Simulated assay, not measured.
Amino acid sequence: MFINSKISRIAKREFRRILERKTLYILIVVLPIFIYLLIGSIYKNEIMRELPMAVIDYDHSQLSRTAIQMFESSGSIAIKEYLVSPDEIKSEFRKGKIQGALVIPYNFEKDTKSGKQTSITVYKNSSNVIVGSLLLKEASTIIKTISVGVQLKKIQSSGKTREEAMNIIMPIKLDTHSLYNPNYSYINYFVPGLVTFILQMMIMIASVLIISSEFAHETFGEVIELSAGSEISILFGKAIPHILINSASAFLIVGIIFPLFGVIVNGSYFLILSLFILFIIVCVMFGVLISSLFKDQFMATEVAVFINTPGFIFSGFTFPLWGMPVIHNIFGNMMPYTHFLSAFIKLSQMDTGLFAVKYDLIILISFLIISIVVSLFMIRMRVRKYEN
């Protein structure tokens, strides 16, 4: 009861400090909501649509017009310009007016119907990997459809049925099953990762001020007096308000942001929220660890930013960890966010149970234990130094 009363006094004081300090209040409460809504609105269309594309049609035949119409009817492509030379294509790319271009050669229909091999040239802006990959995918699908259509007519003209003709053209069918994000939706891919990373960054930037700000404002003596010099009371009394406030962010993300923007959650909400709470506690305690190591709050903030900045890249979200060099893989696995994200994807998208994420949970709990132990040691050292 004695320890609990000391924790309670310090926690009440910390709540007041958060409310009184506008910068901290905005960082913890206001800014995350604004950023979550902003990120969700960016990807609300889910997939990239109507990429501007130019066309050069040297053939001007029925088949070339059909090919152009097929490209234009694709939801991902919008034909914006009709050009006459390849030099114009380069000029339009440089101006940023187009992201791709289609060039249909002379005698396209004639060569196709006579059985000669011909080609359609597609230029794509591969400086943007997403744009380049999407145009390649759409172009490959459309050109394959045109080729199959031409062959189908030829074979059917010899007396074969459509089914027989298709068996000759495509003796092997590709049967694909896209799991977990079948529509390749950016809202289901980017929003969960970006929102949770922002959550971590906001928590840690605020948490690194928990102890260091007391030295900056010369109020550490007040904390010692309220806690009677108990490092346990200081640590948990200062951390609990931040854990509670940021836990509300977890409910906001899962209960409002995800449904508002149509992010699909396949797994158990209870397990997902439990994972969020654990992750939030880890982030707060890791922030306190940094805060207890550096008395200068600006230095503590810089360390937090330095740790968090590459966190998203090394999490394996944009590029898989197994594809990185060994040293980068090791560094990525030393980040709490990497293991949270791995567990989050398994629970929310793959609908797995706790057994499937046990390794990630063990790592997160290990981060938590180390952070608490080192923080208690450092706070005890600070208290003794202050009292002496």
Rank of each mutant, 00 (worst) to 15 (best):
I104N: 02
E164I: 02
T145V: 00
G159F: 12
K116L: 13
V150D: 08
I89T: 09
P105F: 02
K97D: 05
G115D: 11
S140F: 02
S158N: 09
Q156P: 05
K110F: 13
I143C: 11
I169D: 10
S91R: 14
E138C: 07
V129L: 15
S76F: 13
I168Y: 01
K153G: 14
S157V: 00
S91C: 07
E138W: 03
E92F: 13
E81P: 04
L83S: 02
K144P: 01
E109N: 01
S76D: 06
I79M: 03
I142Q: 03
D87V: 10
V131C: 04
P105A: 07
R94E: 11
M166F: 11
K124P: 04
A101E: 04
G149T: 13
P171Q: 08
L152D: 06
T145D: 05
D111S: 09
S140V: 07
V150I: 15
L136D: 14
Q69N: 12
F108C: 01
K113V: 10
M70Y: 01
D111A: 08
V84D: 06
Q117C: 02
S74N: 12
I155H: 06
Q69M: 09
I168A: 06
Y82V: 09
R94C: 07
I98E: 01
K113Q: 10
Y123G: 01
V148L: 10
R162T: 01
S157C: 01
T145K: 05
E138T: 12
R94A: 13
I143W: 00
M170K: 05
G132C: 07
V148C: 03
S74D: 10
S157E: 08
K137T: 08
K116A: 12
K113Y: 08
N167Q: 07
Q117N: 09
